[in-house]
Design a binder for these strands. Structure first.
Length: 835
DNA sequence: GTCACATCGTCGT
DNA sequence: CGATGTGAC
């Protein structure tokens, strides 16, 4: 049950967070949450015992999203039930049984819809499901741990030990176990609510000096927790009042004073309650957990260290023998029966990851994260405590075991890496220093020859050059045999829409990622980057400093916005109304359908249908968003129309939407791009490609479009240019997707002449904008053609989005205006208006 | 204002 | 599991 009302109570200790803010970290996940949510998609099958892996795939989507943000996930699963929770579990089982019976009755009566709702309520997350997910994770080299008892304590232990810097869960109990920071309400777009324990005093409403974590925990237990019901009439508010009022340090004596402090004369604090309170407290502090690096069970905190009488630890679990404990932690045994189900062992050579393969993932995926099960993991990877993507945590290439890809930008570099030598930096990025001079020379030459020449050089490289110069490091020496930044690969097949596996691999290979360079070194020297951005017209990143404060954290939350011409409407992805729920199939349909739908076949059909040279479209969705909105009927996708006469063969176009005249809020990705985050964008594309190879074309096109936008922004004046040749392969026909493009460099604004776009007057135009340096001027940056129903817009409200984030509707940002307030809330807000 | 309790949604398309 | 609404005190 958690602590009722705790998350809203902790509002002041919480902040909206995007996974990009956790880049480079190791994160421990309460996998039950994902499995439980995922089980909703196939509840009837699970209840009936029919084979399905939809819930597993749902979890893997989350794993994928984490990987795409350079985050090492550790999936943690519940183990045995604590004696203290036996009652709760019995009640749940009872409830599930009655739901099942009710569902069966309704089914017999033919009331299938009602039956369905009861079927959902009786889904139990079994260890077999957990094992199914664990096995998929093993294939991908994603670590999993089954807790001896509750996952909560295990998560807290991984956090306490420094193995995981953040914990992801939906259960507010995690805060009581002492996690330093917990991410709640994570969605597939990567946004969540981060609560930090060092801010808890703000939520408690007391001075930092007066605050102790013990007080917080006492408050929560008093208000009622899993291990102890609250005294009647005591909730969070009264418990808070009490723990802040009493000066009594001995909690047992303090408890006796509750009625007096709270003016509740009728309240009786029994001796039994006091003991149960101390037991509950000890359960939170000393629950048995598993240490994967030591390979043994231990307690979350040492009772001796905290002066806790072991007598009170009776509800905190008991130890089991070492070998069984290991098997339990690995997931090999059923936690309750201890029956052996699997025989996986990290030391066993035959248990190496083979790569993921599911019905919708037709690419293998093996992360290169070091496993926590490797001996001396913590000694070897101590730097994990300090986020550092370069050595330990980078997902170098989750597709293959090829050479590492240069890691995505890490905001942490701003503070931690600035003093490194350029050699170190370049090496860290897998760039040989000898690779640099020709590029540098070329850039300088071209720069000297004037702006016109720059159309033939990747402006991203110019940015890199500048950053290198800004670093003022020792001159680089010899000539390179290979320029890692040069545009080499052939990303587009001549048939335009379909790539062979080889072509796809080429597209995904590290050397292909020329666009990664966008801002690699920007992150090394953001200050210099800013200087560069403001002083030179050749601007390739969308870096924006909304507040003009120079604070990089604000920079990192740069917002690319999509605005109307008058800039009135502000619509974020969160304002997008969710797609209307289609009429549910009858339960009979769902449960009796034994013909599995071949998604792959469906997708390929769509792809073929979409192969229409007259209606080339490009998704502007972020890869994360695409995870959500796949398929041509999903409403949140934003289509970008190209002039077919421009011989655009960028990639396979998705089938044009049926209602081209309608417009839907533009979604993310395009606006959600981390600053300079091209590598991450690419990576995300790769990751999402895992799900479905046929998606790769449009996704990579989205990526290129983003680059395209940036490249456009780098051009002065009005100029028509063949952008794609700059970053696509030479020798492949690929012309600018739009005819004439105008840019306004000073405002980082790109304007693509809408007249060049064949929307035939049926589409609505959307203008997007980069705001920069606090400019309030809203300039059109990109006009795109959208295909979504305009009618959905009014549904989108700020309060709805607040609710979604678990924030108070009344929450306001004091120092910024309403628009920027929203911007800061969502990080990647967009403004949009429809004509 | 605070708390207790009941009810609903969680996915997917 | 949390979010939300309602009613009692």
């Amino acid at each position: 049950m958690g602590i009722t009302g705790l998350i809203p109570f902790l509002e002041k200790a919480s902040s909206k967070c995007h996974l990009r803010d956790l880049r480079g970290q190791c994160v421990a996940i309460d996998s039950y949450c994902w499995l439980h949510k995922g089980a909703f998609s196939c509840a009837d099958k699970l209840v009936r015992g029919e084979p399905t892996d939809l819930h597993i795939q749902y979890c893997l989507k989350y794993v994928n999203v984490l990987l795409s943000h350079d985050i090492k996930p550790i999936l943690v699963f519940d183990g045995r039930h604590l004696p203290a929770k036996a009652m709760t579990e019995a009640k749940r089982r009872e409830s599930r049984d009655s739901s099942r019976k009710r569902a069966a009755e309704l089914l017999r009566e033919g009331r299938t819809e009602e039956a369905r709702s009861f079927l959902r309520r009786c889904v139990d997350i079994t260890h077999e499901m957990a094992l199914q997910l664990i096995q998929e994770c093993r294939k991908r080299n994603v670590d999993c741990v089954v807790a001896p008892y509750e996952a909560d304590a295990q998560l807290a232990y991984l956090n306490k030990k420094g193995i995981a810097q953040t914990v992801i869960t939906e259960d507010s109990d995690l805060m009581l176990f002492g996690c330093s920071q917990v991410l709640f309400k994570l969605d597939l777009t990567g946004t969540g609510l981060l609560i930090r324990s060092d801010k808890l005093h703000l939520a408690m409403g007391c001075k930092e000096q007066k605050y102790t974590f013990d007080k917080f925990r006492y408050m929560c237990i008093l208000s009622g927790c899993d291990y102890l019901d609250s005294l009647p009439g005591i909730g969070l508010a009264k418990a808070r009042k009490f723990v802040l009022t009493t000066e009594e340090t001995d909690i047992k004596r303090a408890l006796a004073k509750i009625p007096a402090y709270l003016n509740m004369r009728n309240l009786v604090v029994s001796e039994e309650y006091k003991i149960e309170f101390l037991k509950a407290d000890a359960t939170f502090k000393h629950m048995i957990v598993y240490d994967p690096t030591e390979r043994k069970q231990t307690r979350l905190n040492d009772p001796e260290e905290l002066g806790t009488d072991l007598e009170y630890c009776s509800n905190a679990g008991s130890f089991i023998d070492e070998e069984m404990a290991m098997d339990l932690a690995l997931g090999n045994v059923n936690p309750f029966s201890l029956k052996k189900l699997d025989n996986w062992h990290p030391d066993n050579q035959s248990c190496r990851p083979t790569g993921g393969q599911t019905s919708s993932w037709n690419q293998s995926a093996i992360t290169k994260h070091p496993s926590i099960w490797k001996p001396n993991y913590q000694q070897k990877h101590r730097s994990q405590v300090k986020p550092d993507v370069r050595e330990d945590l980078a997902i170098r290439n989750i597709f293959t075991l090829q050479e590492p890809k240069r890691p995505a930008p890490n905001p942490e570099f701003e503070t931690t890496e600035r003093d490194e030598s350029i050699d170190d930096v370049l090496q860290a990025y897998g760039i040989k220093q000898t690779d640099q001079p020709p590029l540098k020379k070329l850039c300088l030459t071209l720069a000297n020859q004037g702006q016109q020449q720059l159309s033939s050089i990747n402006s991203v490289d110019f940015q890199l050059l500048n950053d290198m110069e800004c670093l003022e490091r020792s001159p680089l020496k010899s000539q390179s045999r290979r320029n890692p930044f040069q545009i080499t690969s052939t990303s587009i097949s001549s048939n335009g829409n379909r790539r062979t596996t080889g072509e796809r691999n080429a597209l995904l290979s590290p050397t292909k990622l020329t666009s990664d360079n966008t801002s690699l070194l920007n992150n090394v020297s953001p200050v210099k980057r800013n200087e560069f951005n403001s002083s030179k017209p050749l601007q390739t990143t969308q870096t924006t400093n909304l507040g003009g404060s120079g604070k990089f954290d604000k920079l990192s939350r740069f917002k690319r916005t999509i605005v109307s011409k008058d800039g009135q409407k502000v619509i974020s992805r969160f304002f997008s109304s969710s797609s209307s729920h289609s009429a549910n199939k009858s339960l009979d349909d769902a449960v009796s359908s034994t013909e599995a739908i071949d998604n792959k076949a469906l997708d390929s059909t769509k792809l073929n249908e979409s192969n229409d040279p007259d209606a080339t479209t490009v998704y502007l969705l972020s890869p994360e968003a695409k995870l959500h909105h796949r398929g041509d009927k999903t409403p949140k996708k934003q289509l970008f129309h190209h002039n077919p006469q421009q011989n655009d063969e960028v990639c396979s176009p998705p089938p044009p939407s049926k209602k081209e005249s309608a417009v839907e809020p533009v979604d993310s990705g395009f606006v959600d791009e981390p600053e300079g985050g091209f590598s991450s964008s690419q990576k995300e594309n790769e990751t999402t490609n895992l799900e479905n190879g046929t998606e790769s074309n449009k996704k990579s096109k989205s990526s290129r479009l983003q680059l395209f936008a940036r490249k456009e922004s780098s051009q002065l004046g009005t100029k028509s240019l063949d952008l794609t040749d700059n970053f696509e392969t030479q020798g492949h026909k690929e012309t600018s997707p739009v005819g004439s493009s105008t840019t306004s460099l000073q405002d980082d604004v790109i304007e693509i002449d809408e007249d060049s776009m064949p929307d035939n007057g049926t589409g609505k135009n959307i203008e997007s904008e980069f705001t920069r340096q606090g400019h309030s001027r809203e300039q059109p940056l990109l006009k795109a053609t959208a295909t979504q129903p305009q009618q959905k817009l009014p549904k989108c409200t700020a309060s709805a989005s607040c609710r979604r984030l678990g924030l108070s509707k009344n929450k306001k940002s004091a120092d910024i205006g309403p628009t920027q307030s929203k911007l800061s809330m969502f990080g990647f807000q967009k403004k949009m208006q429809l004509k």
